[in-house]
Computed example of a mutant assay.
Amino acid sequence: MAVKVLVVDDSSFFRRRVSEILEHDSGIEVIGFAVNGREAVEKTAQLRPDMITMDVEMPVLDGISAVKEIMASNPTPILMFSSLTRDGATATLDALDAGAMDFLPKKFEDIARNNEDAIKLLQAKVKEIGRRRAPRPIKPLAPSRVTSPVSNKVPPASTSVRQPDRSFQRTASEQPSSAQTLPTRASGKKYQLVAIGTSTGGPVALQTILTQLPANFPHPILLIQHMPAAFTPAFAARLNGLCKIRVKEAQQGDRLEAGTAYLAPGGQQMMVEGRGGNKTLRVFEDNSERISYKPSVDVTFASVAKSYLGDVLAIVLTGMGADGRDGARMLKQTGATIWAQDEKSCVVYGMPQAIANAGLASEHLALNDVASRIKRETNCG
């Protein structure tokens, strides 16, 4: 059955262009259009699409406000289109906070190296996201506390951010065969580093996990999120403002410190260099066409395997494709611990599925259980 899509944009040219691209795929059917956020809310209620593509900046009602209203009344998977600017990045992150599932740059040349690849990626994202089922209605979002870098302060409990319910329900046949019972004790393994790789659905997943970690977390954390270069500074700043641990965009020469998470910059690769207690980050431009993702989970995981020799907890979260599988295999060979997010809680069960199919993960965890397992495994909570 084709994924039914509502296309929302105030530009008639862009609506027509997106519609033409989507309907070239037999697995997609465009069932309607909206020219502003208010009309998007109304047509979502009327047409009940499987998913929505949504512009951020629109008249009458902007995209972020429309996402909030749709997620509160008729929850539907939403893919945002955004400009690759600082303001566009902030607005897109606000939309993800409001309940949107993923985003793409509005200029197709910013999506992929060539137009054909960009078209295929858009079609694939729409089909993957559109296969999700509607979640239960939710209350409107509480506003985020901050969106700029701040010092490492523990936020008051009363200002915790309420996330929209993204538990898109699958049919019974799609449910995992059995729920995993979480270990009640740590494995006893000693770690020096935690590394987390993710893609589609990753911003929300990372925020869910990192906001639960204590300020005195005993290890450095590496974050590899597929994201454009314009977005990673704003995303790192937002996480830093929401988390008790420190979060920063990684820079060349950063020395790895406990209680700090380093986000790989968009459009670049991040590797660990050195052995012993003096490990630093190498951040560099990668012009190789052999590696599709920049940053790449495989590249970072492979460097970690060489520098830490198995004293690593590596986690692969929601995302399309198989980035992270080869790097996780290298880590596994050194004795590292590999976990993967479970199918039910993923926005897209691609990267974790690749880990599962390769037999690399010792645990398959629901997103809401990951932080508590990390704290238990690392003896910090």
Rank of each mutant, 00 (worst) to 15 (best):
F235N: 03
F235I: 06
G274K: 10
A250W: 00
V283M: 03
G202D: 07
V272A: 04
A261G: 02
E257T: 14
T200K: 00
Y293S: 14
G277Y: 08
F217Q: 02
S296P: 04
G253R: 01
A230F: 14
L213Q: 05
I221P: 08
K244C: 13
R290S: 13
E257V: 12
Y293E: 06
C243W: 00
V204S: 13
P203T: 07
L242G: 00
M270G: 00
L242N: 09
G197P: 04
A261L: 02
L210K: 09
R290N: 13
R275Q: 13
L256R: 01
H226Q: 11
P228L: 08
T198K: 04
G241F: 07
I291D: 02
A229F: 08
M227N: 08
H219N: 08
G202H: 06
Q268S: 08
T280L: 10
L281K: 02
R282H: 10
A250M: 05
R246G: 04
Q207W: 04
F301N: 02
M271S: 14
L206Q: 00
L206P: 03
P220L: 09
H226Y: 10
Q251F: 06
V304D: 09
T280G: 00
K279A: 03
A230T: 14
I209S: 04
Q212K: 15
A230D: 15
N278C: 05
H226V: 12
Y262S: 05
N278S: 14
P214E: 04
G253S: 12
K294R: 15
H226E: 07
S303K: 00
K248Y: 06
M271E: 15
E273Q: 14
P265S: 11
L210F: 15
A230R: 03
M271I: 12
